[in-house]
Design a protein around this nucleic acid. Structure first.
Lengths: 174, 174
DNA sequence: GTGTATGCAAATTCTTTGCATGGAA
DNA sequence: TTCCATGCAAAGAATTTGCATACAC
């Protein structure tokens, strides 16, 4: 999971400085198995360096984005309006988010390469960043929803809204 | 450009009401040739109905999203952290954003269909929404940047940061 | 030593909530 | 006539800025 990207190299090339905080934050993002948002990252960092400030997290994230070391995602804002971060992978990939349980899968597949190539060819565009985020319901949640629907039917009359609404429906945020 | 989606149908089916404001806001989004953000939409709406409130814009956008009439984009946040809105099109498409001039192109192509199919097949996933956003430099801005680089070289010494930085580089937000 | 990075407090931006009134069905 | 929708004011969440101090080079 951990990338081969060099924080030091990238930072020094631009006259920037390698600090305790930057090293820590990059390590945490790069080593995390989840997609962290700024707040989660801050809390993790605080455990290892209680003196670190939330503002430093934001400033460092901005820097890492600019240097192309980290990508920013929103995962369709399935919970709140925060952003999520991951170290940039070599392989293009899409994020597949279950709108019910929040689980995030990554999909690597050739249509993504194709898409980039076509866009570059079609528009003469120079792509710096590409992001595909897909929301819906994972197999597990589809099964759960089906079972719930079944139970509803066998429980007799049900408040109108509940019965009429599709079982699977975009969940309002929060 | 205008979609065939019915606001009235969708609204009434869920026990909701068709109001002056909702009609107006949907019309504006559906009729706009640009991707509007909440603030821009509010300002447009205010011209046609000075009594409308910003909060109503947010509430209506949320509703339209939930009903699947409108999709939310962030266009890679190329200017600020707002979201942008468009009426849902039948055809899958990607948004291609120039990080320099801000121009947004839409790309329709089969890799997008392929991608969805593969994700559904691979994970047994039921896709409700899919979003691809691509950032980089449009042909026009590449040409401009090349010319600028040329002029820089012929102007003699230049402040270090300017000369050392790649000509095309992710623009820091704002 | 110089100039960038950090921490702290305060400000800003974007969005949501509470509540009384207005208006669609 | 019934409740959903709106407007207004205020709150809230996420992120940024200003400035003095700390620390990497």
């Amino acid at each position: 999971m951990a990338s081969q990207l060099s924080l030091g190299g990238s930072v020094q090339e631009h006259g920037l400085r390698m600090t305790r905080q930057r090293r820590l934050l990059f390590e945490l993002i790069d080593g995390s198995r989840e997609h962290l948002n700024a707040e989660a990252l801050y809390r993790l960092a605080k455990q290892r360096d209680p003196r670190i400030n939330r503002v430093t997290v934001y400033r460092t994230l901005k820097l890492l984005k600019q240097e192309g070391l980290v990508d920013e995602l929103d995962l369709l804002h399935h919970e709140g309006d925060q952003h999520y971060y991951e170290t940039r992978l070599k392989r293009e990939h899409a994020h597949v988010v279950c709108l019910r349980c929040g689980r995030v899968e990554e999909f690597f597949g050739e249509p993504l390469q194709r898409l980039k190539q076509q866009i570059e060819a079609h528009f003469g565009f120079q792509i710096m960043i590409a992001r595909t985020e897909v929301g819906g319901y994972c197999a597990h949640c589809q099964a759960l929803a089906a079972r719930e629907a079944h139970e509803l039917r066998n429980t007799g009359p049900v408040p109108r809204e509940k019965a009429a609404a599709p079982v699977l429906k975009w969940q309002p945020k929060k």
